[in-house]
């Protein structure tokens, strides 16, 4: 029993010593589409975003801020309007879709353009449902705008912040992202994924059933069509790759 307590204490010391005071529980939600700034960072569509890439759901700060990062110094990159944030093309009515990693009891969801609150949804302390989407009217605004969304938690002093860059046109309505107005490094045209027969296994490659690769000096045959990703190396994924 005593050891049982000692070990966690040691774990805690390790956490403290490694400077990891950020608790995993601080992660909870953000807007996925139209893509919020943190979603664009996590997707790699905007470079040099820092830690937000790993935890787009963690933009938590005291309620009441009008900044994309909720104020403070953490994730300040989200406030940087000089970054080439892509703006999704939309019409006057936009459906904002949220990703949640924890379903906190909610007081309100608020949407702002500039200092004007354009929508508020009052959940009266209820827990969010399986999916959260809000249809919001942009009130006839046109051109490029920045929407700030705040998810106000019912039983804490905190809120989660998401900023979404939009290009509002008359004909839009979907969430199709358009490239930022100035594109410093134009992306090369997307080539079809290489089939890479007989080559070395590489993350990002689309493999068809029967494709063969080498990895770590051994050969493997693909058992199920998939796009390779880091962590899915052939020796780690017997369901996807068979040694030959």
């Amino acid at each position: 029993m005593r050891k049982r307590i000692v070990l966690p204490v040691l774990s805690i010391l390790t956490i403290v010593m490694s400077g990891m005071i950020a608790n995993p529980a601080s992660a909870h939600g953000y807007i996925s589409s139209p893509p919020s700034r943190q979603a664009n960072c996590a997707q790699g569509r905007v470079a040099n975003c820092g830690d937000i890439v790993w935890e787009p759901q963690s933009v938590e700060a005291p309620k009441g801020s009008m900044q994309c990062n909720g104020g403070g110094s953490r994730f300040a990159v989200l406030n940087d309007n000089s970054k080439p944030w892509p703006a999704a093309s939309v019409g006057n009515n936009v459906t904002f879709n949220w990703v949640l990693t924890a379903r906190h009891r909610t007081s309100t969801w608020e949407y702002f353009v500039g200092s004007t609150r354009i929508a508020v949804i009052n959940d009266n302390g209820a827990q969010p449902g399986a999916t959260v989407s809000h249809n919001v009217s942009l009130g006839g605004r046109t051109g490029r705008i920045l929407v700030l969304a705040r998810w106000n938690i019912y039983d804490t002093a905190m809120a989660f912040y998401s900023c979404v860059d939009l290009q509002v046109g008359s004909g839009g309505g979907g969430g199709t992202p358009t490239p930022p107005p100035t594109s410093p490094s134009p992306q090369p045209p997307q080539s079809p994924p290489p089939t890479n027969p007989g080559g070395t296994w590489a993350a990002g490659t689309a493999y068809a059933v029967g494709a063969t690769v080498t990895y770590g000096g051994l050969s493997y045959r693909c058992l199920q069509a998939h796009t390779a990703l880091a962590g899915w190396e052939p020796p780690n994924t017997p369901a996807l790759w068979q040694r030959i």
């Binding site: 992660a27 939600g29 996925s32 589409s33 935890e55 759901q57 879709n97 949220w98 990703v99 949640l100 990693t101 399986a130 999916t131």
Partner: peptide, 8 residues
Amino acid sequence: NLLIGHQH
């Protein structure tokens, strides 16, 4: 949206 949250 469900699975993104789940994998996070």
